[in-house]
Amino acid sequence: MTSLTREDLKTEQPISWCPGCGNFGILRALQTALVDLKIPREKYLVVTGIGCHGKLFNYININGFHGIHGRVLPFATGAKLANHDLIVLGFAGDGDQYDEGLGHFPHAARRNIDVKLFTHDNKVYGLTTGQTSPTSPQGYKSKTSPGGAIPTPINPLMLALASNASFVARGFVGDVTHMKELMKAAIQHKGFALVDILQVCITFNRAQTYQFYRDRVYKLEEENHDATDLQQALKRSRETGDRIPIGIFYQEERPVYRARLPQIKTQPLIKQPIKPTKLKQLLREFT
């Protein structure tokens, strides 16, 4: 067993999130999940997008790549297929994943690429100073929707379920211990995992506050939810009003993408010899 402490996971980078930001809870949940899992830190790769969430890259001392807006999943997909010994953890924001990067989301899910996606879903654009996000509720007022947001919000959990995601969960930054357990379950799940995290932007979103969620969230595991039942999961995913479920909505065992690739059955691509043999044979086919 490797011992990994929260101290090992810290970096010397000054944290630039607003005091009280929900991101602190996500970072703490991640640190403690990794400590609990006792896996050597070199095995992890964290991939983040652009937004306040993306700064997490600077604050966690595991391999990391801070990419561009919306592209966490394709980058993570390439890295995972290159070296499937890596545990690839994607972190994205709601604007990042459900606006700019939405096109990648169902594909990662249906491929069942073994990448974990944690979305900091605070229902507002934080780093660009408070615009409406794709998960902002209808009527949400911001500088880009002063008259109230016209469209209905994207429901990430329904979208994930409809895209055949094999692990779909929701966490809440106000319950770090619970979120940590969800992260661990996602990491231990074989296949694509979404943990959509109800995050709080204390600066720009005055509607979806800690208190707002505390008044509404309940834990699925406390209400006899059967996470192997897709119909139940879909039903629960539609609860977005007075009661908001957190926990694991759905989980199924399905072969991961790479299991269907004989060329990486035995060892990761990165460990295979690079110089090709049998090239001459191939060239002869053109003579």
């Binding site: 990419g67 592209r71 394709p74 997909t77 594909h107 090709p276 049998k278």
Partner: peptide, 27 residues
């Protein structure tokens, strides 16, 4: 035959980011 992983991406945006991901990981 040559131990290559090929992936039909959902867009060229995905394709280049996947490629960069694989290259960052060492391929």
């Amino acid at each position: 035959r040559f131990g290559i992983v090929t992936l039909q991406a959902e867009s060229e945006i995905a394709a280049i980011n996947m490629t960069i991901g694989a290259a960052y990981a060492g391929l």
